[in-house]
Design a protein around this nucleic acid. Sequence first.
DNA 1: CTGTCGCGAGTGAATGTTCATTCATCAGAT
DNA 2: ATCTGATGAATGAACATTCACTCGCGACAG
Lengths: 211, 211
Amino acid sequence: MTSPRMALATAARPREAEILDSIRQTFAEKGFDGASMQDLARAAGMSVGNFYRYFPSKAAMVEAIVTRDLAEVEEKFTSIAAAADPLAALRCGLHQHIEEECSGCDDGPLWAEITAAALRKPEIGAVVQKMESEIRGYLLSAFAMIAGMPRDEAERHFAAHSAMVVMLVKAAAIQAQAGDQVSAGRTELNELVKRMIDAVLAEVAAAKSKD
Amino acid sequence: MTSPRMALATAARPREAEILDSIRQTFAEKGFDGASMQDLARAAGMSVGNFYRYFPSKAAMVEAIVTRDLAEVEEKFTSIAAAADPLAALRCGLHQHIEEECSGCDDGPLWAEITAAALRKPEIGAVVQKMESEIRGYLLSAFAMIAGMPRDEAERHFAAHSAMVVMLVKAAAIQAQAGDQVSAGRTELNELVKRMIDAVLAEVAAAKSKD
DNA sequence: CTGTCGCGAGTGAATGTTCATTCATCAGAT
DNA sequence: ATCTGATGAATGAACATTCACTCGCGACAG
């Protein structure tokens, strides 16, 4: 997940993307309020003064992080929409995502932090909400294809389903980073999460047959 | 949720409980790192100096908050375990909890904050993990009754199920406080969450018949 | 080829503010 | 007289934000 992300965004605004990668870690480790501008500047490998040239506020950094991740997600959904069997592609993509979050890329703390900050700071709340509603939009488009119904009908029927998928994925990512004693049961929980996602998708697919 | 909480804990250490109620709000509004000792002391209605007599650190406050909420949860599970139909009682209790979190008691931000803090500060992580594992324990005991199997067997079969329930409840509480545009779809999402919980419980109950 | 001008990128010390933590002190009850 | 619960000013560290300044480099006139 790290290398494609870097490759993707580096193309557009190289320096900013590079800084973003450094910043993520710091936010994850110290939290939104816990990370000082000095901390962040140091992590980005530059002086405090210069740092303000790139990001005038913490909210701006979160916005940049969110925007970049959203672009990644969009890319994935585009390939899902183009697949021969969208249901299978979506299912596979989600399962893969659950696996990835568990081992390797530790974005859990970062999203926990951003989620918490979104509930306190309106600027961040707006950004996060825009992101989530956009993702729900992608899901709904996929659902429309799967259920063989127009997009707006899918929206009416499956709004909650799309929200549930987003919720499950986020919750799983955050949970995956908590504690170590239970790591044996981590695999089991992941399997159960995947089954829950399957159940949601099954409800969507079931709308097709009864037309 | 507020009044029973106060009534419960006031019996034991009145002053501390009173302070805790004031503190909650501040943590929810400003975040763990965002809330200064001055903020918290003011919220508790006392001087900074005196405040340190009650809580020497923010982690201690979180611990107190968590401990108190855990006592509430324990109480609920005790009554569930004593019910004639534990499955129905558990199901009803969980559904009720989902409803409550949505309207009225806005504990979402607080738990988002605590969850995020738990991933960064080891002391808080330990406390939260202890709480969650205790709750999972209560769930597993209930599961054992429902499935009609010894407790340790339930633990082997349903560890993931208990973790999933905890995850769903927490995620729903946090999600319930995000944004306002979607509040129309909030009810639908809540219904879906309840159905997911039902699905998990159904898997537990299914273990009974096949003995 | 060379001097120098402009400019974007980068620096880090300075400023005023807020924070955590301590402590000398106080009011009132025993 | 003393003990308990409470006060809030004091202290030093850390923070956000600004700013005067440097450096390297390409353009370009001589």
